[in-house]
Design a binder for these strands. Sequence first.
DNA 1: TACGCCATGTAACGGGTTACATGATTCA
DNA 2: TGAATCATGTAACCCGTTACATGGCGTA
Lengths: 187, 187
Amino acid sequence: MLKYVLLGFLNYQPLTGYDLELHIRNSTTHFWHARLSQIYMTLKELETEGLVRSEVEAQAKRPDRRVYSLTDAGRAAFFDWLAVPLTERSQAKEPLLLKLFFSAGAGKQAILKQLRIQLDLHIRHQKVYEGDIPDVAADLLNNHPQLQADALMWSAVRDFGARYERLYIAWLEDTIRKIEQDFPETS
Amino acid sequence: MLKYVLLGFLNYQPLTGYDLELHIRNSTTHFWHARLSQIYMTLKELETEGLVRSEVEAQAKRPDRRVYSLTDAGRAAFFDWLAVPLTERSQAKEPLLLKLFFSAGAGKQAILKQLRIQLDLHIRHQKVYEGDIPDVAADLLNNHPQLQADALMWSAVRDFGARYERLYIAWLEDTIRKIEQDFPETS
DNA sequence: TACGCCATGTAACGGGTTACATGATTCA
DNA sequence: TGAATCATGTAACCCGTTACATGGCGTA
């Protein structure tokens, strides 16, 4: 799937592997993330498949950069992917819920500690969705005013993220309260 | 991580690979799932690591079953895992959000179709969280009344699932409305 | 008679993570 | 002087998926 993330961003403009990592980190990270090493590998694969091409650009006072852009085949592959709707619920894996599910034996205090650590993390993370949109997205929109429809989709997805953080925080707060009240003291 | 799921269920009672799949499908599936083939492989690995042991049980009119149970080392490994809190937000991957993020080019009708397919899936799935707890969980509780604290954790996690489904449905409905209103007609 | 459940596995493949490796520039 | 940013890559490993393989029993 990372292939399509890369094709998707390259459909907007040519970018390097490094740039792509920035875009991913700033806009898709809460529903799709990737390490730089994987991005570089995947770009190579896309190039051997003929979906992207690249050229090296020399820079003064900076390392050379390899700039990737979509080929016609790449653009076609991307739109083919877009055209197929997802007909199943996605089955995510949530390590926190898994650990909590089995945590009764860890004791009341350990459970509360775990929940409070996560509450803190989520509260501190929340500003990502409340604040301005990231610079990379703003720049992209300024440089390509025809991306209004895209911006609508970006904001819908961002809205999901905001709601999700709110749900997570409310659930953590309620669950902390419930455990404090109902969980038996370790004897 | 599947290793800990298996250890966690075996900490309640001895089970076969097939039984474990049933438990997973009925209670952890919305935050952790696994295929039977992987479960069988992982059980073998756990046995070579000395964390579980197994014995074959012959059955009349049914295939033989290999029943796994925790060793002391397995129980210790499980509680070691429980004792370490998760100190990072979990980064899930959500293919639907990814596709929507890039879907502007697919056109208004394709986007609405995708959203409505998912809305239907999530509405039909919702009863899983609204109805009774699954039989496997109820049986476990009836046979082991000392699992009251565990039941509290199970219900907390289940509550998360219910809230998540409600969020998903509300977001899909709101997004459908927004797209209908604001997304430019394909020219 | 055909489907679903019970029951266990192997083999090939794919996607992703971690660790390793390098090195200049800029800013605090 | 040390940390962050820019910039690209390779190799080993691990976890998980898909496909393949088998076969009896109960039930509609």
